[in-house]
């Protein structure tokens, strides 16, 4: 049985459509990621999943239980971490944990083994009030609280936002650990690079799912060969690539509707481009040299999640 099944979920706030015909399935024991920017509809989708919102249309079940009709049974099965870490800032680490344990009808002792790998990292600070913890520690505490009743499914809304890189990596390692315990995990993040940590991902933008697959397959779905061009002055490189005779329509700061061939996009220390059919990479370097950018380099690269996202977004428009 699938852990989550969503059929044609639509949700509107007044005139704004937050979710537009979203369907997906999460398998039991899977680590499933929703990747998309702020405002894509991730939080609304998660709130529907945890029975907090009744969708305007469509239907969702968790372990066969409907999120609207069977919300009472479901609430016992879900471990939920909302976007804002839901901790009582004026209660200590221990008090927060005990409180949530009692509320969910269990005790810290009963499920200690489950949270141990996470909790033991913050246990030395158990007397400290939650408001005084660092972002990473808050995140760990919030996860411990969500886990305390041994849920069958963990639903984590942007658990890594605003947390430093070290804590984030640790966090994803913890999630892998929990997956081995057999807990299904649905997680959302605006950070494309975190997608690689998931079994499968859904790319979500403006309330629509652009694609669902394993991270590798998503990357493979990029339609063309992708190249990275490097040159010390990135701005000059970017503008030059746009105005090369090969590229009829530059991508200005505001989006442009006409098709263009090179699609130069700044990516970190390089600019990613795709080549029109029949154009060789060397021709680009030559053209750049003529344009006054000697010594640029070009290499073919494996597209990243963000490249695919960008392509899908453009297609969608």
């Amino acid at each position: 049985m699938a852990a989550v099944e969503a059929y044609n979920i639509t949700h509107r706030y007044g005139k704004v459509t937050a979710l537009d015909d979203v369907s997906f399935t999460v398998d039991d024991g899977e680590l499933f990621g929703f990747i998309g920017p702020d405002g894509a509809g991730k939080t609304t989708l998660f709130r529907i999943a945890v029975t907090l919102i009744i969708p305007s249309g469509g239907r969702m079940t968790l372990f066969g239980l409907n999120t609207v009709n069977n919300y009472r049974e479901l609430r016992n099965l879900i471990g939920y971490m909302p976007g804002k870490f839901s901790l009582y800032q004026d209660l200590s680490v221990e008090e927060n944990l005990n409180f949530y344990a009692t509320v969910f009808g269990t005790t810290l002792k009963e499920n200690y083994h489950l949270i141990e790998p996470i909790y033991k990292q913050i246990e030395p600070y158990k007397k400290r009030i939650a408001g005084k913890l660092s972002g990473g520690m808050k995140q760990k505490l919030a996860l411990s609280c969500a886990l305390i009743h041994k849920p069958k499914i963990l639903i984590l809304d942007e658990p890594t936002t605003g947390v430093d890189a070290v804590s984030r990596t640790e966090f994803w390692e913890m999630l892998s650990g929990l997956k081995h315990e057999g807990i299904t995990i649905v997680v959302s993040t605006p950070y494309m690079d975190e997608a690689l940590r998931c079994d499968r991902i859904a790319l979500i933008q403006s309330g629509k799912i652009l694609g669902i697959n394993t991270p590798d397959n998503i990357r493979r779905s990029y339609s063309q060969k992708l190249y990275a061009v490097r040159y010390p002055d990135k701005y000059k490189l970017l503008t030059s690539l746009r105005s090369l005779p090969l590229a009829p329509c530059p991508m200005p700061i505001a989006p442009c509707s006409e098709p263009y061939t090179l699609s130069p996009e700044p990516f970190g220390d390089s600019v990613h481009i795709t080549l029109p059919e029949g154009t060789k990479p060397e021709e680009i370097l030559k053209a750049l040299e003529t344009a006054g950018l000697p010594g640029a380099t070009i290499t073919e690269i494996v597209p990243g999640i963000e490249d695919v996202f960008l392509e899908l977004m453009k297609k969608d428009e």
Partner: peptide, 13 residues
């Protein structure tokens, strides 16, 4: 405001 209500609502309380 602190988001704790969300978890309480989702809890069996």
């Amino acid at each position: 405001e602190f988001g704790t209500m969300e978890v309480l609502l989702v809890s069996p309380l």
